[in-house]
Nucleic acid binder design. Sequence first.
DNA 1: TCGCAGGGGTATTTCATCAG
DNA 2: CTGATGAAATACCCCTGCGA
Length: 291
Amino acid sequence: MVITDTDLQILEVLAQYYVLTREQIQRFSAAPISSGRSVRRRLLKMSLAELIRKHRIPVALPGKNGAAPVYYLTKNGTEVLADHFNDGTYLGLPTRQPRVDRLNHWVALNETRWTIEQAIASQSEVGLERWINEWETVNKSAHEKEQFYLQTKLSENPPLSCSPDAGFVMSLRGHKKVFYLEQDLGTSSPKQIAARKTKGYAELANRKLHRKHFPETTLDTFTILFITTTAYRSQTTAERIRTRPRPDLWLCIDQHELTPESFLYGPITLNYQGERAALVKPIETQKEIPC
DNA sequence: TCGCAGGGGTATTTCATCAG
DNA sequence: CTGATGAAATACCCCTGCGA
């Protein structure tokens, strides 16, 4: 098969986001491809050429009616990218089939990520330094046995771990702050979420392990963005978190309100005291000692 | 050699149809 | 309604042959 520029574009987008629907591939591409039909056509050809794989389970799209297949890279696909860009790091990308029960999660998470990236790209003051997904090793360049993931086992007995869906660093006026992302799909109750997740993050904060994930940070604390499906869940979760350890770390966001503009200028987040604010504000107001 | 029409192949768009 | 898919139409690119 002849690899066209469009194919490379598609491969690159998949390399960055791992799992995407056709619609997302089309929208996230650097040079957007106008027709959905032509993208599907390319995707079909690339599937036949084993550069990508189409998951056999279509994903119900949030806020939409139908369902759509999702696509991910194969080993062949990463090799084409590595060859073309002469960059071996592509070979390390995950190419295994995503878990069926996580497909929705990936689609939603990538949607959030893209919105944030759009927000950052639209201005120059705030920067996005790094984005790490849960399956990615934090320190890719280190020796294999020294590599580790965002998922952190904090203690064996009692079992305590912390598994962010993603982590990223935003910079503003010399400060670099760590954010963890929790993408909620409304599958468990806010009460359970508050009970289950807060402990791990509190311990993570206590040991300042976010500095291990992101050594470049200049701040001693981090923020968890809890992106959820409805305003009600956002509010309820914020309330439930109040009585849990370190509620100050959490900010809840209704995904419907998350746009590039609102991400920067808010108000969009809800803290445990029910206050709404913009997102960049937490970076500005914290007076921490830089590294 | 230059200019250009026409052929072949591919990419893209349009249209029609089906499904949830 | 949105989205997938197949078929047909159209646009585009590259090459070749041919006459001036």
